[in-house]
């Protein structure tokens, strides 16, 4: 079983002309986990991944796999598998000959070609010209290329784009399986909701800079804790809250009390003899935290 290497970005910066696409980016990606590399379109995700893979030269900084730059890996496809965009094919080649070309270049046995096509569910289309493939099939072929050398590290740029619901379900399981086997899995997306069921860790960038990194659960915090509470007798409830010194505002579905302690509110209402019709904490979701981060309105 291939073992995953640690991916390490160290002070990576990239300027295109005078514009900083990536600015002093540093983070690590651990084996055995799925790491979501998140940020809005144009945040610098693809540029960062291309720097990591030696396709784009960094203006400064280094990006390595277990301490080794991509171009210095003895046989890169057997260490790192990457799927970048869904259109890197000559349309006149069949899926089998497309993969065959790169298997030859990397000295990978030709038997792997049909094995990876079967793994991504394209075995029946192996002899079909790629020009006739749907976007979802191209995504799968890109994944097949990444798997060709049975690498310990997978770097996937927006792999869920263009997949149908069945494909999305499949890739979520696929990502979990790869990490469970001990591989390092780095998967980018501009939508947290796309990957939140699959990822263990998140690295979030915006405008080329790191804005947050940590386990997914680190996003699950209450930026402004509030509890919604309501009663058929709203005036009595308001009086009880005021008596207990809890500030509140009047919302669409009830009173928004400035506390996360729902039990306290329930107790207050009970002792005041007020009947409750609504009582629940208002959580700001992961997506809200994510949007707040990339919007730059505050940091965690």
């Amino acid at each position: 079983m291939p073992t995953g290497a640690v991916i390490e970005f160290t002070n990576i910066s990239k300027r295109f002309g005078g514009i900083a696409a990536v600015n002093d980016l540093s983070f690590t990606v651990e084996p055995g986990r799925v790491t979501g590399f998140l940020g809005p379109n144009g945040a610098g995700k693809t540029t960062s991944l291309r720097i990591l893979l030696g396709l784009v030269g960094a203006t400064s900084g280094t990006a390595t796999f277990g301490g080794v730059r991509y171009r210095d890996l003895p046989n890169p496809l057997t260490t790192v598998g990457a799927a970048l965009e869904a259109a890197s094919f000559h349309p006149g080649r069949t899926a089998r000959s497309h993969l065959g070309v790169y298997a030859i270049a990397a000295g990978i046995p030709r038997t792997r070609v049909l094995a990876v096509l079967a793994q991504v569910g394209l075995a029946a289309h192996a002899a079909q010209r790629v020009g006739g493939y749907s976007l979802g099939m191209r995504q799968r072929l890109g994944l097949a290329y990444a798997l060709l050398g049975n690498p310990g590290v997978l770097v996937l740029d927006e792999p869920i784009n263009g997949l149908d619901p069945e494909g999305i379900r499949w890739i979520r399981g696929f990502l979990r399986d790869m990490a469970a086997e001990g591989r390092t899995v780095l998967v980018s997306s501009h939508l947290l909701s796309e990957v939140q069921q699959s990822v263990d860790d998140v690295v979030i960038i915006a405008r080329g800079e790191l804005v947050h990194r940590g386990p997914l659960s680190s996003l699950d915090t209450d930026a402004a804790p509030q509890t919604i509470v309501d009663s058929p007798d709203r005036d009595a409830l308001a009086a009880a809250l005021t008596a207990a010194g809890i500030t509140f505002s009047i919302g669409r579905t009830g009173l928004l009390a400035a506390t996360s302690d729902a039990a306290l509110l329930g107790h207050l209402a009970f002792t005041a003899g007020v009947e409750l019709s609504v009582l629940h904490r208002q959580k700001s979701g992961l997506e809200d935290s994510f949007l707040a981060l990339v919007g730059g309105s505050h940091t965690l």
Partner: peptide, 16 residues
């Protein structure tokens, strides 16, 4: 053709 079909990406990944 390598530029046009963006096959430089898989090519340079296999042979940096």
């Amino acid at each position: 053709g390598e530029f046009r079909h963006q096959t430089l990406t898989p090519t340079f990944l296999a042979t940096p």
